[in-house]
Design a protein around this nucleic acid. Structure first.
Length: 477
DNA sequence: CGACCAAGATATACATCTTGGTCGGTGCGGTATT
């Protein structure tokens, strides 16, 4: 029966590794955490069961509006019309229309923030929800604690919706992240389906250098690797600087206009751009099969983030390369970025004091010159509104900082480790070590090829189009 | 915390050093402003 639907609705002949047990668990009504390699056909896992159920709704929580958009389009393009999305892009009228006709829907996509809206929550609590899906579930751990706190509240919301069975999907999760997911979603004895996070097609290289030589080392490496290539930097400024330095490179970060971001991503996807220099803003949901190389000009803050980022290489299974450049002191910027996410104790005192005296946040903000858009302040505000005391907040923050600095330290350990890098990572994810060809620089089994270019001359008109975009306007940097 | 930059000081007539300010990532949503 499952195979029939797979063929008829999704036009696939066979299930891919891991899909079947996940679907079975879902159909049995079990809470499930599934760690599947990227591009492993995760959407079939939650879209298929719906056809084996007489009625009811599948809710899908997704981190990015662009991902929601893509998924809805894909579903519609295979002929399924019973799908809708609830985001800030819908008008109030559209939202009301959707909420009044939930019985006609098979799939509803939304952001965690929308699910926190009382009116939406109330309405959804009245209908039968077959499955509560959290896509890119590592966001619960990565963003839920401080950056997008609605992620951390999904478990509570799910209970308010009558405890529908839950499916959490991600490509990379340590046991700690998996634990965060289970707790964050309030799962009960979940079925855990875990595939190896190893990506055998990606060889792992670290180049230690001095700060002053970094550009040279980068250029040297670029001569030896294949394109398409992604270069990750920590700051927007650096992304722009390096994009100027590298032939045919284009930069990408969250400071660009949404249209420019979309254009650049599309051009990269269609092999019209050969080398993309970006911050961590790039990558989630990007499914490009032939990325041959990912270079980190500066390191990310965690090994999980590193795996996510290099995991964008080699989706086609062909030999690929991940190179990380490290100069002493590189971790300091990441350390700073961790610390600046938390409010200084002065703010905590000022705001907590004001709240005790029953003052509005608005008045407190004005008196102490606090910026309502500052993420650190907003986190503090959320915690106070959740009823946490000054002492609890300070304890919590100290603990979180400690955890995150420890994660950063593990990243440093990866860089300075002199044994097999792959085994180091696998161990980090709780897996057994492995021996393979094209492993890592420490194993000494690398293969490097000459540079290649997938960009044909006649495709270079992207430059013209980009120049139009950049020199005509508006874009903020 | 450190990189970067602009303004000012120093010592000399153009350039270098010092000081002080700003900035540094990821996204949702909604509010205030053009």
């Amino acid at each position: 029966m499952m195979e029939k639907i797979l063929k008829k609705v999704f036009r696939y002949d066979h299930f891919r590794a891991g899909q079947q047990p996940i679907i079975e668990a879902v159909l049995a009504g079990q809470d499930t955490v599934a760690i599947l390699p990227t591009g492993g056909g995760k959407s079939v896992c939650y879209q298929l069961p719906s056809y084996l159920q007489p009625d009811g709704l599948t809710l899908i929580l997704s981190p990015l509006l662009s991902l929601i958009e893509d998924q809805v389009m894909q579903i519609k393009s295979r002929g399924e019309r019973a799908v809708a999305k609830l985001t800030s892009l819908e008008t109030r009228e559209q939202k009301e229309h959707i909420l009044h006709h939930l019985d006609r829907l098979r799939y509803l996509y939304l952001s965690p923030e929308q699910l926190a809206v009382p009116q939406i929550k109330r309405r959804l609590a009245e209908v039968k929800i077959n499955l509560f899906v959290v896509d890119e579930a590592h966001c619960i751990s990565q963003w839920g604690h401080e950056f997008r706190t609605d992620y951390a509240k999904l478990g509570h919301v799910r209970q308010q919706l009558g405890n529908p069975p839950c499916l959490a999907l991600t490509a990379t999760a340590t046991h700690q992240v998996e634990q965060d997911i289970i707790e964050g979603l309030a799962l009960r004895q979940p079925t855990r389906i875990r595939h190896s996070v190893n990506r055998p097609e990606i060889q792992l290289i670290v180049k230690q250098t001095e700060q002053a030589d970094k550009d040279l080392v980068l250029e040297e490496q670029l001569k030896m690797v294949e394109r398409p290539c992604v270069i990750y930097t920590t700051t927007r400024k650096e992304a722009e600087r390096i994009a100027k330095l590298v032939t045919n490179a284009v930069y990408y970060h969250a400071g660009l206009e949404a249209e420019d971001r979309q254009l650049i991503q599309q051009q990269f996807l269609h092999d019209e751009i050969d080398c993309l220099v970006c911050t961590s803003a790039f990558g989630m949901g990007v499914n490009k099969a032939n990325v041959r190389t990912v270079i980190h000009y500066t390191m990310p803050a965690t090994i999980e983030a590193y795996m996510q980022e290099i995991g964008r290489a080699g989706r086609d299974g062909q030999p690929s390369t991940a190179i990380l450049l490290y100069a002493p002191g590189d971790q300091r910027l990441q350390q700073f970025l961790v610390e600046k996410q938390y409010a200084p104790s002065l703010w905590i005192d000022q705001v907590a004091q004001g709240r005790v005296q029953n003052e509005s946040f608005e008045i407190i903000e004005r008196r102490f010159g606090l910026n309502a858009d500052d993420p650190a302040y907003r986190l503090l505000k959320t915690q106070l509104m959740d009823g946490k005391t000054r002492a609890e907040i300070i304890d919590w923050q100290e603990n979180r900082k400690k955890i995150r600095l420890r994660e950063l330290m593990q990243m440093i350990n990866y860089i300075q480790n002199t044994l097999c890098r792959r085994s180091f990572i696998l161990n980090h994810f709780g897996e057994d070590p492995i021996i393979q060809d094209r492993c890592c620089d420490n194993c000494g089994t690398l293969t490097l090829v000459g540079p290649t270019s997938h960009v044909e001359q006649d495709q270079l008109n992207w430059r013209r189009r980009l120049e139009e975009v950049f020199f005509s306007s508006h874009h903020s940097v």
